[in-house]
Simulated assay, not measured.
Amino acid sequence: MNWKDFFYFSQRERRGILLLLVFIGGIFAGKLLFAPPQAEPIATEPTFIPEEPSGQTSEKLPYVPYFQQQERPQRKAYTHPPRPQEQARTYYNRKQEEEARPATNLPPKAEKFAQGVVIELNTADSTDLVKIPGIGAFFAKNILSYKKILGGYHRIEQLQEVHGMYEELYAKIFPFLKVDASQVAAIPVNKASLDRLMAHPYIDFYQAKAIVEVRKKKGRLSSIKDLQLLDEFTDNDWLKIAPYLDF
């Protein structure tokens, strides 16, 4: 093989080499033509630093705050003028004057019942209840609110369930009250909805749901015996609920 064969190129290869050389030459020419001009260095003048005279040194003045540079006038302490002796009153003098002053703005106190007076609990209003010794507006409101939720009181002992009631107060008001059970508004068991049954404080959700389910299976309920086999109720529950159910 002759060494000239290594440098032999076909026509297509020669064209490719020529294009490659032209491309490389174009890159170098572009860098030379479009290169940014170099900025000339800016001549700066030397900074002049004055020399201190020989034998002298610079001393800094001491810092004085602004509020110390000016003298402010001193404010005079205010003294209250002495009060006349006849106007000086102590706490005890004012208290005695208030006690001696007639209480014209106070509301009149409710007249209380005497011993032996008895009122019916279900028909009594707040005006009647506040006349019972030991009962004010607060307990009168609670007693009436609980009566509305129950549908009426069946026994006087139910007052012990009123919010805020305590044993001493219950024992004090017991002799002034009696109950007419005929005034109780009973729940129509065969027509009452689930929400109506649950609204009574003696019936919870599961008990109300059990009553509705039995009513769907048996149809119309005739007496409380149709419900006494339910597991959701105890004997004590039936004693409390029975006066409030209407079949």
Rank of each mutant, 00 (worst) to 15 (best):
Met1Gly: 15
Asp5Ala: 14
Phe6Thr: 06
Phe6His: 08
Tyr8Lys: 13
Glu13Tyr: 00
Glu13Lys: 03
Glu13Arg: 09
Arg14Pro: 00
Arg14Gln: 13
Arg15Pro: 00
Arg15Gly: 09
Ile17Cys: 03
Leu19Ile: 11
Gly26His: 09
Ile27Phe: 15
Phe28Met: 14
Gly30Trp: 13
Gly30Glu: 10
Lys31Arg: 15
Leu33Pro: 03
Pro36Glu: 09
Pro37Ser: 14
Gln38Phe: 10
Gln38Ile: 13
Ala39Tyr: 02
Pro41Gln: 12
Pro41Asn: 11
Ile42Gln: 08
Ala43Cys: 00
Thr44Ala: 03
Thr44Lys: 04
Glu45Ser: 01
Glu45Asp: 02
Pro46Trp: 04
Phe48Ser: 00
Ile49Val: 13
Ile49Thr: 14
Pro50Gly: 02
Glu52Pro: 03
Glu52Arg: 15
Ser54Met: 10
Ser54Asn: 10
Gly55Phe: 03
Gln56Asn: 02
Ser58Pro: 06
Lys60Val: 10
Lys60Trp: 09
Leu61His: 01
Leu61Tyr: 10
Tyr63Met: 06
Val64Gln: 14
Val64Ile: 15
Pro65Ile: 06
Pro65His: 04
Tyr66His: 11
Glu71Val: 13
Arg72Cys: 08
Gln74Gly: 07
Tyr78His: 07
Thr79His: 10
Thr79Leu: 12
His80Pro: 08
Tyr91Phe: 14
Tyr92Phe: 12
Lys95Ile: 07
Glu97Asn: 02
Glu98Val: 09
Glu99Pro: 01
Ala100Pro: 02
Arg101Lys: 15
Arg101Gly: 03
Thr104Tyr: 11
Leu106Asp: 01
Pro108Ile: 10
Pro108Gly: 02
Ala110Pro: 12
Gln115Ile: 14
Gly116Glu: 09
Gly116Trp: 06
Val117Pro: 05
Val118Thr: 13
Ile119Tyr: 06
Leu121Ser: 02
Thr123Trp: 06
Thr127Ala: 15
Thr127Gly: 11
Asp128Gln: 15
Lys131Gln: 15
Ile132Trp: 07
Ile132Cys: 06
Pro133Phe: 10
Ile135Gln: 03
Phe139Trp: 10
Ser145Gly: 12
Tyr146Gly: 03
Tyr146Thr: 09
Leu150Lys: 03
Gly152Gln: 06
Leu159Val: 12
Gln160Gly: 05
Glu161Gly: 01
Val162Leu: 02
Met165Lys: 06
Glu168Trp: 00
Glu168Ser: 13
Tyr170Asp: 06
Lys172Cys: 02
Pro175Lys: 03
Leu177Trp: 05
Lys178Val: 04
Lys178Leu: 08
Asp180Leu: 09
Ala186His: 01
Val189Glu: 04
Asn190Trp: 08
Lys191Glu: 14
Ala192Asn: 01
Arg196Ala: 15
Met198Thr: 04
His200Phe: 07
His200Thr: 03
Pro201Val: 03
Pro201Asp: 09
Asp204Glu: 14
Phe205Cys: 02
Phe205Gly: 08
Val212Met: 09
Val214Tyr: 06
Lys217Arg: 08
Ser223Cys: 07
Ile224Asn: 06
Leu227Val: 03
Leu230Pro: 02
Leu230Cys: 00
Leu230Arg: 00
Leu230Val: 00
Asp231Ala: 12
Asp231Gly: 06
Glu232Gln: 13
Glu232Ser: 07
Trp238Asp: 07
Ile241Ser: 01
Phe247Ser: 04
